[in-house]
């Protein structure tokens, strides 16, 4: 199969699962007041063209391990609601202007409303988990609930690490620090837990979910680095402001690589830049940071790291999914990694 075929097949399947999960998610938004400043806004982010990785991974893994698609719906919806709640609050904390090609909720409606909308999404995420009780029974409902609890806790701890680095203007970070932060902030909730939850449901709780940790971490880390790369070199279809991460002072693998490879004078200047508030960082300064990243081949370093991690994920995939039948869903996850391995920027 050619690279284009793999990409097309993967993206079609991803679209199917995303649309299905959005449809299911909207059923959980109450049809009542207050609409203008709450329930109408709750559906804004889910309706925008997100990737839908989390629900797709959850549903497909459930089917791979023998479950029925509908058995994973509630958990997939909960994952998407918690994810979107996290994004609303994350955008506030990062002072981001754009999300999925449009203004962030706080840009459009102000901070207080945005924070409340995020809170509402967190609360709404509990309902589908409760509904699991009637479909999955108490044992699986509890197991899924425990997974979500761990996922949410890890995500906020990871976010705290990243915010702390910016607050303290930490400039002596290593690749290990970055990998630890994204494990907590991104990988558990983007890949590892959606797959674990899908496998728990599909297998009726008989599969040991720990077997997916390594696979999910490699895949999630590769995905996060690629996402950060797109912010630096992607085009407007990426949906966030290009180089927004540099404006935010976000500690990406590429920025950490730059901090660790540039000379003393350059590091001093970079540290001064990072110490400023976002509003005080100027476009010429941002361009200078990009020039430094070029000089020290930070983009290449990021690309290589992302590819290596995707390659390691592919190897792990054959270990943990190797004994599963070659179904559309198994191919979907395999194609997801192949898509990442061969991704052009």
């Amino acid at each position: 199969m050619s690279q284009n075929d793999i990409q097309e097949k993967f993206l079609n399947q991803l679209t199917n699962y995303r649309e299905l999960s959005i449809k299911k998610l909207l059923e959980f938004i109450p049809e009542r007041e207050p609409k203008k400043f709450l329930y109408d806004l709750v559906s804004i982010y889910p309706k925008r063209a997100g990737k839908g990785f989390r629900p797709s991974l959850c549903i497909s893994t459930c089917k791979i391990f023998g479950g029925k698609e509908y058995e994973a719906y509630n958990s997939a919806v909960a994952l998407e609601l918690f994810h979107n709640a996290f994004l609303v609050h994350d955008d506030v904390e990062d002072e981001s202007c754009d999300r999925r090609g449009y203004p962030t909720i706080h840009e459009q409606y102000g901070m207080p409303v945005a924070i409340n909308v995020g809170d509402a999404m967190n609360v709404l995420g509990i309902k589908p988990l409760m509904k699991n009780l009637t479909i999955l029974g108490p044992k699986l409902t509890w197991l899924v609930f425990s997974e979500v609890e761990h996922m949410a806790l890890e995500a906020v701890e990871g976010q705290a690490m990243e915010l702390g680095w910016r607050m303290d203007n930490t400039c002596n970070l290593t690749d290990e620090d970055y990998l630890k932060m994204i494990l907590k902030k991104t990988c558990w909730y983007t890949v590892i837990h959606p797959i674990r939850i899908g496998a728990i449901i599909g297998s009726g709780g008989t599969v040991d979910p720990d077997r997916f940790n390594r696979f999910g971490y490699y895949m999630g880390a590769s995905f996060q680095i690629q996402d950060d790369l797109l912010n630096l070199i992607g085009d407007k279809k990426y949906g966030k402001e290009i180089c927004g991460d540099i404006l935010e002072g976000k500690r990406t693998l590429m920025l950490i690589h730059l901090l660790n490879t540039c000379n003393g004078k350059e590091k001093e200047r970079l540290t001064r830049y990072l110490a400023k508030n976002r509003a005080d960082r100027t476009p010429p300064e941002m361009k200078w940071v990009m020039k430094m990243m070029d000089k020290y081949e930070c983009i290449e370093y990021g690309k290589k790291s992302a590819k290596n991690l995707a390659g390691a994920a592919l190897k792990e995939f054959y270990t943990v999914f190797g004994d599963r039948q070659d179904t559309i869903d198994r191919q979907f996850i395999e194609n997801m990694i192949l898509y990442m391995v061969n991704r052009d920027y």
């Binding site: 690749d175 990998l179 390594r214 290596n308 991690l309």
Partner: peptide, 11 residues
Amino acid sequence: SKIVIKAANIL
């Protein structure tokens, strides 16, 4: 790859 080894250890 070094990055993969680092990731494995952290996990």
